[in-house]
Structure formats: structure tokens, C-alpha cells
């Protein structure tokens, strides 16, 4: 059976924290712990106006890819609420294909 995962197109992750908070709500996760946690790389200047500055949300071992929601035909809550709509849920093989098509600044998690 295929595994499911999260594809994150972090060209468009704005660092809004909606995934973190939606996940905490869904799974009743207390302060100090996260089911998905935003990480930040940068900002630093490469040359001229070119900068490296990325946000990437990383699912933790508390993430069950919203099993209950998915059973009800809904999206995982992080994907549903993501303001940048930069997260996708699905079988990893399909996501890997999409990943190859997107090119740069994409990451696939299989938590």
C-alpha cells in the first residue's frame, strides 16, 4: 500500500504559522510542542538583490496526516488552512511526480 505525504512548495511558504496553529487545534497539542513546526533559513544576502530566505514547515512525530479528517473526505488541516496554499497531501509517488515538475524550492515529507 502506498504511503501518504506532504509536498511543500516553499517558494510560496510565507511563514504565516497557520499550519502550526491549525494542527495544534486539531490534535489538541499543548504549548511547547508541535505537530508541524515552521523553520526559517536565512535571511542572508547572496549578491546584489538576491537573497536566501525560506520558511519550511516540518511535520513532527505527532503528525498523523490528519487521519480522521482524511477519512471524512477532508484535507489535513495544515493543507486546508495554509495561506500560501503551498502544501499538498497525497500518495508520495504522485507527489514526487509533481515535485519533479515544480523544480526548485520543493520538499516532500513522509511523516
Amino acid at each position: 500500500m502506498s504511503r501518504n505525504g506532504l509536498l511543500i512548495d516553499y517558494q510560496y511558504c510565507t511563514g504565516c504559522h497557520s499550519c502550526e496553529v491549525a494542527c495544534k487545534n486539531e490534535h489538541k497539542i499543548p504549548r511547547g510542542k508541535w505537530g508541524i513546526k515552521l523553520t526559517e533559513v536565512g535571511p542572508w544576502q547572496m549578491e546584489g538583490d538576491k537573497w536566501e530566505w525560506n520558511y519550511v514547515p516540518v511535520p513532527t512525530s505527532l503528525c498523523d496526516l490528519c487521519e480522521d479528517r482524511v477519512k471524512n473526505g477532508e484535507k489535513p488541516t495544515c493543507v486546508h488552512h495554509c495561506l500560501g496554499q503551498c502544501m499538498e497531501y497525497g500518495p508520495v509517488e504522485e507527489l514526487a511526480k509533481k515535485m519533479a515538475e515544480k523544480g526548485k524550492r520543493v520538499v516532500l515529507f513522509a511523516p
Binding site: 497557520s18 491549525a22 486546508h80 488552512h81 495561506l83 496554499q85
Partner: peptide, 24 residues
């Protein structure tokens, strides 16, 4: 007990910011 974005909304398409998500 729960706040959820409405996927049928033409503008938000179900997305919510963290001030809405912490409304409860």
C-alpha cells in the same frame, strides 16, 4: 470548540490566519 475556513468562499478558499484560528 472549532473554527474552520470555508473552502467554498471565493476569496479565502478555506484559508485562515492564526488570529482566526485562535478565535476560541
Amino acid at each position: 470548540v472549532k473554527v474552520e475556513g470555508d473552502p467554498d468562499h471565493p476569496i479565502s478558499q478555506g484559508r485562515l490566519c492564526i488570529r482566526c484560528l485562535t478565535l476560541p
